[in-house]
């Protein structure tokens, strides 16, 4: 028996919003520690890695490890039926071919259940090597979303260049070019608005705008985002989900033709 209950369905709704443009289907691997999901987009350019820890749920029970293969557009349709303040419970029997979502309104006056067919997914799982990154940049997630959106107007790629002084995002194309430079903040009123850079060595890498914009669908999950970069390795874009886990996106860089 697998059962996981969240007091607020909004976390799960936001998680789905954060992955459903990149992935059409994915396996939720459930064990004692919680729920893990790892999946690449169809073109194998990016990867989503989601962790929801058991202790972040209001109730969590997983008697046997279970893999729930889900069609994410179906799951998204079902989660749209939950009110933001509803409690959500995911349930599956061992060896089940369905998963059930139960939504309960705060006053318990409305209880809905939706059963969804599971899929047998045989997806490739990748080993991600432990990496010491040359640069990590922490900034407001809303600011990062804004930068990606603004620069997307200028070209298909964004160059991210990190030095001791700060981080520069650049794009260029038919209409011209754009540069946004963020300096490390000296002092801020709100911690989540700070720009914090840790740098061993300067790094400049080029990434596809389209994917960065997909990643920013996770903005509502966290006030901050962390970018980790090293020369010639995939970028990591991490959103920490308060009290329950994180979502990380990996994106392969572009290289000169």
């Amino acid at each position: 028996m697998f059962e996981a209950r969240l007091l607020r369905s909004s976390i799960l709704k936001k998680v789905l919003e954060a992955i459903k443009d990149l992935l059409t289907q994915a396996t939720f691997d459930c064990d004692d520690n919680g729920i893990q999901l790892q999946a690449m987009d169809n073109s194998h350019v990016s990867l989503v890695s989601l962790t929801l820890r058991a202790d972040g749920f209001d109730k969590y029970r997983c008697d046997r490890n279970i893999s729930l293969g889900m069609n994410l557009s179906s799951m998204s349709k079902i989660l749209k039926c939950a009110g933001d303040k509803d409690t959500v419970t995911m349930k599956a029997q061992d060896n089940a071919d369905t998963v059930t979502f139960v939504f309960e309104s705060p006053n318990q006056e409305k209880v809905s259940d939706y059963e969804m067919k599971l899929m047998n997914l045989d997806l490739e799982h990748l080993g991600i090597p432990e990496t010491e990154y040359s640069c990590t940049i922490r900034l407001s997630s809303a600011e990062f979303a804004r930068i990606c959106r603004d620069l997307s107007q200028f070209g298909e790629s964004i160059v991210i260049s990190c030095t001791k002084e700060g981080v520069r995002f650049s794009a260029s194309g038919d209409i011209g070019s754009a540069n946004i430079a963020l300096a490390q903040t000296a002092s801020v009123d709100k911690e989540e608005e700070a720009v914090v850079i840790e740098m061993e060595e300067p790094v400049t890498l080029t990434f596809a705008c389209q994917y960065l914009n997909y990643f920013t669908k996770a903005t509502s999950l966290s006030p901050q985002v962390q970018l980790s970069m090293s020369a010639d390795v995939p970028l990591v874009v991490e959103y920490r989900i308060p009290d329950i886990g994180h979502i990380r996106y990996y994106l392969a860089p572009k290289i000169d033709d």
Binding site: V45, S46, G127
Partner: peptide, 14 residues
């Protein structure tokens, strides 16, 4: 603007 690499260039199947 540059050639897109895939993750297979960096990560191994496990």
């Amino acid at each position: 603007s540059g050639k897109q690499q895939t993750l297979m260039n960096f990560f191994k199947k496990s």
